[in-house]
Simulated scan of single mutants.
Amino acid sequence: MKRELIFHETYKTRHHAKKSIFDYIVSFYNYKRIHSTNGYLSPMAYEKKYHEHSKTRHAV
């Protein structure tokens, strides 16, 4: 990210920097793509499954 986004950029305010970085991450990170390390689930589906499992484990 440093080389691709920040290195050649000068931000006027911290807000502009945060917005630019956030936009970059959202566009770069494909949260719908499945990953083999997540049991072939998307990152969002994996997190949902993880949190549901965590709730049932702590409810006992």
Rank of each mutant, 00 (worst) to 15 (best):
Y31C: 08
R3I: 15
M1C: 10
K2M: 08
Y50V: 00
K18T: 03
F28R: 15
M1P: 06
T13S: 13
E52A: 08
E52G: 05
L5K: 11
A17V: 04
H16K: 14
Y46E: 02
Y31D: 08
K49N: 08
I25P: 10
R3T: 14
F28V: 15
T56R: 08
S42G: 01
T13Y: 09
I34Q: 06
F22H: 13
M44E: 04
R33H: 00
V60A: 04
F28H: 13
H8F: 06
T10P: 06
S20Y: 03
Y24I: 14
A59P: 09
R14M: 06
Y40R: 15
K55P: 02
G39H: 07
S36Q: 06
Y50W: 01
S27M: 02
K55W: 07
F7K: 13
F28G: 10
E52F: 05
H15K: 14
T10G: 13
Y29V: 14
A17M: 05
I21P: 04
L5G: 14
A17N: 04
Y46D: 04
Y24C: 12
T37G: 03
I34V: 13
S36M: 06
H15P: 11
M1R: 10
K19C: 10
R3C: 15
K12L: 11
R14Y: 07
H58Q: 02
R33K: 08
V60I: 05
A45G: 03
A59T: 11
M44V: 03
G39M: 07
N38C: 11
R57T: 02
Y46R: 00
M1T: 10
V26R: 01
K19Y: 07
E4F: 13
I6R: 08
Y40V: 13
D23M: 12
E9N: 05
N38L: 10
V26Y: 02
K55Y: 07
E4W: 10
L5N: 14
H51K: 03
Y46F: 10
P43W: 03
T13I: 13
R3L: 15
R33Q: 04
K19E: 11
H35P: 00
H8E: 04
Y31Q: 07
I6M: 12
K32V: 03
R14C: 09
H35S: 13
T13H: 11
A59C: 11
H16Q: 15
D23E: 15
S42I: 00
N38A: 06
R14H: 10
H8P: 02
T56M: 05
K2S: 14
K18P: 01
A59F: 07
F22W: 14
S27T: 03
I25F: 15
F7I: 11
H53T: 02
V26P: 00
F22E: 12
M44Y: 06
K48S: 09
I34H: 07
I25S: 09
Y50D: 00
V26G: 00
E4P: 06
E4N: 13
K55G: 02
Y31S: 03
D23G: 09
Y24V: 14
I34E: 08
Y50L: 04
Y31N: 09
F7W: 11
S36R: 14
K12P: 09
K49M: 09
K2Q: 12
G39I: 06
K49Q: 09
G39C: 09
Y24R: 12
S20H: 06
Y50R: 04
Y31L: 08
H53I: 00
S54T: 01
